[in-house]
Computed example of a mutant assay.
Amino acid sequence: MDLHEEGCCSGFHHGRRAMLKSTLGLVALGAMGVTPLLLPGFAEAAALTKAQRDAMTPDQVIALLKQGNERFRAGKLDTHDYLAQKRASAAGQYPAAVILSCIDSRAPAEIICDTGIGDTFNARVAGNIANDDLLGSMEFACAVAGAKLVLVMGHTACGAIKGAIDGAKLGNLTGLLDKIKPAVEATRFDGERSSKNDAFVDAVAATNVRHTIDEIRRRSDVLAGLEKDGKIKIVGSMYQLVGGKLEFYA
Rank of each mutant, 00 (worst) to 15 (best):
K148D: 03
A126E: 05
V98A: 08
A97Y: 11
G127I: 01
N128T: 02
I99D: 03
T120H: 07
M138R: 02
Y94N: 15
I129S: 03
A147C: 15
A90E: 13
A123Y: 12
L149D: 00
I99A: 04
A126F: 10
Y94P: 03
I103T: 13
M153E: 03
G159Q: 09
C102A: 08
L151W: 05
A130K: 02
G159V: 14
L135K: 03
G92C: 11
V125D: 04
A91N: 13
A130C: 13
I99L: 12
L149S: 02
V150D: 06
I111S: 08
N128L: 06
R106T: 07
I112S: 07
G127H: 07
G159R: 09
P95T: 06
G118N: 06
L100Q: 02
D104M: 06
A147W: 02
C158R: 09
A147P: 01
A107T: 15
D104F: 02
L135M: 13
F140D: 02
I161V: 15
D104W: 00
V98M: 06
G159W: 07
P95D: 01
M138P: 03
F121A: 05
A91G: 12
N131M: 11
E110D: 15
G127M: 05
N128G: 04
Y94C: 13
I117N: 04
E139M: 11
L100M: 10
C142G: 08
R106N: 10
D132G: 05
L134R: 12
R106H: 10
G116Y: 15
T120Q: 09
G116D: 06
S101V: 07
A143E: 13
A96M: 14
I103V: 14
R124T: 05
H155G: 00
I161L: 11
A147D: 00
N128W: 07
I112L: 15
C102N: 01
T156P: 01
G118L: 08
L134D: 01
L135C: 07
